[in-house]
C-alpha cells in the first residue's frame, strides 16, 4: 500500500486519451490480460455471483433475515469485539512499536520477528492455544476464576482472540512512521520548555495518529471477519458470544443458502464501507506527510 510512484520515464507522445502510456517494454498485453482474467475467475466472478444470489432473495426477505434478533446480536458482537480489540491494540501496539523503534535492548530482534506470529500461525492453532490458556482450568483462566469472572466462552474471550490476531497490523503500520520521525522537532519542543508528556501529546501523537488510525482500521476489518481463532474460545452461545462468520457457517450447514448469502453480503457491504474508509484515511495520511 505504498505510494505508487510514476515509473515510466517516457511521457505520452500525443495528447488525448490513451489506455497505455507509450513504452518500449514488451509483454503488457499478456501480463495484463492474464492478470485480469485470473482476477475475474478467482475473485470477481465468485464475489459478484454471491451478490446476485443475495439480490435474488428480494428486499423484504433480505431485511427480514438481516434484522432478525439473533443475527443483529451477532453483528453487534462481531463489530463490538473487533472495535474493542482494535482499541486495546492501539494502546499496546503503539507501546510495542515505540519500544522496538526507539530502544536497544537484548532480545529486541527476536521480539521484532515474533510480532508477526499471528500472521504466520494458523488460526485454528491460535484458537485452541488461547482456549487452553483462558479456559477456567487454563493458566490464566484459573486466575480469573479465582478472581470471580470468566474469560473463555464469553465476549471477553472473543476480544482476547482478536487482540492476538490484530496486534501486528498496528505495530507494522506505526513502526515506519516512528522511524521517520524527525528528532529535531522533539528537540525543538524540549528546548522551548515542553515536558516529555507535552511533547508526546502535542507534537508526536498528531504525527503518528494517521498511521495509528489506519492500523486500527485494518485490525478492525480483520477482526470482524475472523473465524478460526474465535470459534474455540467464544463458546458460541446464541445472542451472547455468537459471531457473524459462525452464523454464516451454521446457515450453510443447514443448507439455508439464502440465509448464509444474505448475512454474508450484508457483512461484505459493511466491510466494503470500511475499506473505503481505510483508503480515505491512507490518502489523508499521505497528503499530510507529503514533503
Amino acid at each position: 500500500m505504498t505510494a505508487a510512484a510514476s515509473t515510466t520515464a517516457t511521457k505520452p507522445a500525443r495528447r488525448g486519451w490513451a489506455f497505455l502510456a507509450p513504452t518500449i517494454l514488451p509483454g503488457f498485453g499478456t501480463a495484463f490480460g492474464f492478470t485480469l482474467a485470473y482476477l475475474c475467475l478467482i475473485v470477481l466472478i465468485p464475489l459478484g455471483h454471491m451478490a446476485l444470489r443475495a439480490a435474488d432473495v428480494g428486499w423484504d426477505r433480505f431485511w427480514a433475515i438481516t434484522l432478525a434478533p439473533r443475527v443483529l446480536h451477532a453483528f453487534f458482537v462481531s463489530f463490538g469485539c473487533a472495535l474493542a480489540a482494535a482499541l486495546i491494540n492501539a494502546v499496546f501496539g503503539l507501546v510495542v512499536a515505540w519500544v522496538l523503534v526507539r530502544y536497544r535492548f537484548p532480545g529486541r530482534r527476536l521480539i521484532d520477528a515474533m510480532v508477526d506470529l499471528p500472521f504466520a500461525l494458523p488460526t485454528s492453532v491460535a484458537g485452541i492455544a488461547l482456549t487452553a490458556i483462558y479456559a477456567p482450568n487454563g493458566w490464566i483462566g484459573a486466575l480469573a476464576k479465582a478472581a470471580g469472572f470468566k474469560i473463555a466462552f464469553t465476549p471477553l474471550g472473543i476480544v482476547i482472540a482478536l487482540v492476538f490476531v490484530g496486534m501486528p497490523f498496528i505495530v507494522r503500520t506505526v513502526e515506519p512512521v516512528l522511524q521517520d520521525l524527525d528528532a529535531e522537532v522533539e528537540e525543538a519542543a524540549a528546548s522551548l520548555g515542553a515536558t516529555r508528556w507535552q511533547t508526546f501529546t502535542k507534537v508526536l501523537l498528531p504525527t503518528i495518529l494517521p498511521a495509528l488510525i489506519t492500523g486500527v482500521a485494518l485490525a478492525f476489518a480483520r477482526g470482524v471477519g475472523e473465524y478460526g481463532s474465535v470459534i474455540f474460545i467464544a463458546g458460541n452461545i446464541p445472542a451472547v458470544s455468537e459471531i457473524v462468520p459462525l452464523l454464516i457457517v451454521a446457515r450453510l450447514e443447514q443448507y439455508d443458502y439464502a440465509g448464509a448469502t444474505v448475512i454474508a453480503t450484508a457483512m461484505m457491504g459493511v466491510s466494503f464501507l470500511m475499506l473505503l474508509g481505510i483508503n480515505f484515511l491512507q490518502r489523508w495520511t499521505r497528503s499530510r506527510h507529503a514533503r
Partner: peptide, 18 residues
C-alpha cells in the same frame, strides 16, 4: 487486495454458491 478484506468464511461460501 480485495481477498484480504473478505472474511475467510465468505471466501469459501462464494464457491459453495457456485
Amino acid at each position: 487486495d480485495l481477498p484480504f478484506s473478505v472474511s475467510p468464511v465468505i471466501s469459501g461460501l462464494v464457491y459453495v454458491l457456485l
